[in-house]
C-alpha cells in the first residue's frame, strides 16, 4: 500500500502541526530543514507542504489522505472532508474591526442596516456573518494586508483573523465584534478515512492536543 500522505500547512500553524504529528511518532524533523522541497518522503509517510487555504483542496481530492488546517479555513471553504480532531493549538479569533476613531460611526451604520463595506480574506464567512445579523455589507475580497483597506478608504471595516491583536493595535483598529474562534483541526479525505481507517485513527488518536506540552 502507498504511504500515507499528510498535508502540512505553512505559516502560523506550521510549528503546531509538526508538534502534533511529531507527538504521534511521525518523522517530522525533515520538514524543519529550510529547503524548498514540496514533497518529503520518509519512513513510510509522505509530507506535502502548502498554503493553509490549499490544504483542504488537496485532502478533498484525495491528493493527501490527512491534513492539518485552521477551522477558519474550513468554515470559509466548506470542503467535503472528514473533520476528525481539534488540536486546540493555533487559537485565534475571527473579528470585525474598524479604525478606532470611526468605530462608533461604523457600529451605528451597521445597527441602522446601512450598507457597509468590509474588506476580508474570508468572503463567505463575511457574507454569512452579515446575513446572520440581518445587516447589509459590500464584501471586498483581498488576499493580503487587510488592515490597509480601511486606512486608505477602500472599506469601512475589516473581517479578519487575529491571534494576539497586535496587528490590529499597530494599525489603530478597534474590534467591533468577536465572531468566532478557530483552532487547528485534523481533516481526512472521505475515501482514505474508510479505506485506511485503522492507520488514520491510530495517527489521529496519537496526536496530542497542544503537542503534549500543555495537555
Amino acid at each position: 500500500m502507498s504511504p500515507l500522505r499528510v498535508a502540512v500547512p505553512k505559516g502560523a500553524i506550521f510549528e503546531d502541526a509538526l508538534e502534533a504529528l511529531g507527538g504521534a511518532g511521525m518523522p517530522v524533523e525533515v520538514l524543519r530543514g529550510d529547503d524548498r522541497r514540496l514533497i518529503y518522503r520518509v519512513e513510510g509517510v509522505e509530507f506535502i507542504t502548502s498554503r493553509p487555504s490549499d490544504v483542504p483542496v488537496f485532502v478533498e481530492y484525495g491528493s493527501a489522505d490527512v491534513g492539518i488546517v485552521g477551522k477558519d479555513v474550513l468554515e470559509e471553504q466548506g470542503p467535503n472532508v472528514m473533520e476528525l480532531r481539534d488540536l486546540g493549538t493555533g487559537a485565534c479569533r475571527m473579528v470585525l474591526a474598524a479604525p478606532a476613531e470611526r468605530a462608533g460611526e461604523v457600529r451605528e451604520a451597521i445597527e441602522h442596516a446601512e450598507v457597509v463595506r468590509v474588506a476580508t480574506k474570508f468572503p463567505n464567512t463575511a457574507r454569512r456573518y452579515f446575513e446572520g445579523l440581518g445587516r447589509q455589507a459590500e464584501v471586498i475580497e483581498l488576499h493580503g494586508s487587510i488592515e490597509l483597506a480601511p486606512l486608505v478608504g477602500l472599506s469601512e471595516c475589516i473581517l479578519d483573523l487575529t491571534a494576539t491583536g497586535t496587528t490590529l493595535r499597530e494599525n489603530d483598529l478597534e474590534v467591533l465584534d468577536d465572531i468566532s474562534g478557530s483552532t487547528a483541526r485534523v481533516i481526512a479525505n472521505r475515501g482514505s478515512y474508510r479505506l485506511r481507517n485503522r492507520e488514520i485513527s491510530t495517527l489521529v488518536g496519537a496526536m496530542h492536543p497542544d503537542g503534549g506540552t500543555r495537555g
Binding site: Y61, G191, L195
Partner: peptide, 10 residues
Amino acid sequence: EVYAGGMGFT
C-alpha cells in the same frame, strides 16, 4: 458509498 483507490470522491 463506494470508494476506489486513487479517487478521493465517491
